[in-house]
Design a protein around this nucleic acid. Structure first.
Lengths: 342, 342
DNA sequence: ATGAAAGCGCTAACAC
DNA sequence: GTGTTAGCGCTTTCAT
């Protein structure tokens, strides 16, 4: 029977296999594979050659247990389909790139219970740090974060008390600013369109800030409409049409995100409603998609890339971690688009 | 000195801590925490109470090493910002939900080298299975997949030879079908607009199939334009305007994805070019976003949810795995939208 | 129903 | 520069 050169192994290879194949102790093999300590050029070559020929893949589980070190960073976010979070992820990945740390993503679908269980699951792998969206967590989740003994960075939002560090913007202030700009531009009859999600705390805070600023100017929202699920663009279109049918006197629509805002914009364009002449529109997030639209709605950049980057720097220890309670507040830029004049 | 009730521990808790707190052996604690074997109701209660009070989080690293079992499934995809992959992820997560398996995502940015290193990194955690996009990998990556000794499912595409199992559609056939529908609808002067990415094999195969079918009808693409990077919607708009300026006689534009197609559609609408009267448009993917547009371009559903679901079922062993070479071909539906008549 | 012993595959710490 | 020893925190297996 002819000898098959490299049969697929039935069990995974271990350091011992590489050790035997190269005639060097397991310890030295381990050192070569991790670039640790002094190893002579000759043995180095032989070990690497043997490992490559065998197709050895190190077992990080054993390595992590022995070294008490795990190069993983848990990243916990509400959703992947939101357009917002992929960009935060980019900031995190890019920054972690040359630190040897690896992000691992968990998704909660805006459910606190799911967040708790995802967090538990991730902590059980003993990551080197946690980056988690928002400041609102179940008491159990907060306790886990507090007791984890690793750096924790809560991102996106800073309106609240962080467990450890926080990096983000004030959504309350963002809402206020938008309201102030809208009022300054002369709009008075304002409607709001947003998500129904009870656990989207950041959208909630923006709306609260928005209404505060309206109230200070002696104004109030004239109408509001909420949605959940479905294509955001389509919902934006439908809600806008419904609201304008009900409240034809409105002169401005404030959307809780750019996608529904874009739907509203398309609806206005196809109905021949002049934007911004007849109606002003504003969203939130500063998503790239808006660049492709025939007219710019006002929006606000949420500093997503920066947030990911700074959070990762804190975890990686590249940034002097001020200890508990460090809050990094970023200042979102209001982008007036074509719809806010002045 | 007053006793502080539950000080944040400086080291992570172990089974031993729970064992001591509950007065039960480590082994029994382990059994309770995993719901294994017979444990009397009383001890069970005491153990759970102790674990909860201490805030014990099991160490999966040690558990995995001891049991040689890891409940992780590696999922390797090219991009998160593509709109396509979040949906595949949904299919995977939902199906894995009640199996005890957990997806872990790695992103390659369409780079074969990055794919290789992400794969290596993930395999070193000894996952229970791998779901990976595409059939094209570096030789080293293929070797790793072959030797991993776990189920491997290559997804999205079936035009090629899988390492183990494959679930997806034939992009070549999808391109053909779209060309045939376009020709049947009477269009003759056809332009193509797509990505430049050399490693987007699926877009490449669709175009190849498309051109094949054109050739069989005695036709050829009259013009083509490629882009890379930037906002897809905006690029779609720009490329469309550039192409129509250069080749004003075209009566159909085939886009390699729906986002640039949507940009093209918006461009036509704002320029007053009648769709589909003057010009037909088609994209690919069947993204939800299209529902919000004022007019439907033709597209083709890529069966993303099904792909994720079936791949996960194979990994979870819910579906009789036919052994090496199993290929599950899904049949995408052509959605004529408003632009393909008849 | 519960416990004791052995060991998963690696690395820290120390010898040589 | 290289090898030896002793665990890392669990689970498996076997004994009681």
């Amino acid at each position: 029977m002819a000898k098959i050169p490299l049969p697929a192994p039935r069990r995974m290879l271990t350091l011992r296999d590489v050790s035997e194949a190269s005639g060097v102790s397991e310890m030295t093999v381990s050192r070569v594979l991790r670039n640790r300590g002094d190893v002579s050029g000759g043995t180095r070559e032989r070990v690497l050659e043997a490992a490559r020929a065998l197709g050895y893949v190190p077992n990080k589980i054993a390595g992590a247990l022995a070294s008490q070190r795990v190069n993983l960073v848990a990243v916990i976010i509400p959703s992947l389909s939101n357009m917002v979070f992929p960009e935060v992820m980019t900031g995190i990945s890019d920054t972690l790139e040359d630190t040897g740390l690896q992000p691992v993503v968990g998704v909660t679908n805006y459910s606190p219970e799911r967040e708790e269980s995802v967090l538990y699951e991730m902590l059980s792998w003993r990551p080197s740090g946690v980056i988690i969206a928002g400041l609102e967590h179940t008491p159990a989740a907060r306790a886990m974060l507090q007791n984890a003994g690793i750096p924790i960075v809560e991102i996106m939002d800073i309106d609240g008390t962080p467990v450890d560090a926080a990096v983000g913007i004030s959504h309350r202030r963002a809402g206020r600013q938008m309201a102030e700009a809208i009022i300054a531009a002369g709009y008075r009859r304002i409607g709001f369109l947003g998500t129904m999600m009870p656990h989207d705390h950041r959208a909630r805070k923006r709306l609260a800030g928005f209404e505060e600023a309206l109230a200070e100017a002696g104004l109030a929202l004239e109408d509001r409409e909420f949605y959940s699920g479905g294509s955001a663009l389509l919902k934006g279109r439908e809600m806008t049409e419904a609201m304008l049918a009900r409240s034809p006197d409105l002169d401005f629509l404030y959307y809780s995100n750019d996608m529904i805002g874009a739907g509203g914009l398309l609806s206005c364009l196809s109905k021949g409603i002049a934007v911004p002449g007849r109606l002003g529109l504003a969203g939130f997030n500063g998503v790239e998609l808006l660049d492709g639209l025939p007219c710019r709605l006002a929006t606000m950049d949420a500093c997503r890339l920066d947030i990911g980057q700074i959070a990762a720097e804190i975890i990686a220890g590249k940034r002097a971690h001020q200890g508990l309670g460090e809050v990094v507040e970023l200042m979102p830029k209001l982008q007036p688009g074509d719809t806010i004049r002045g």
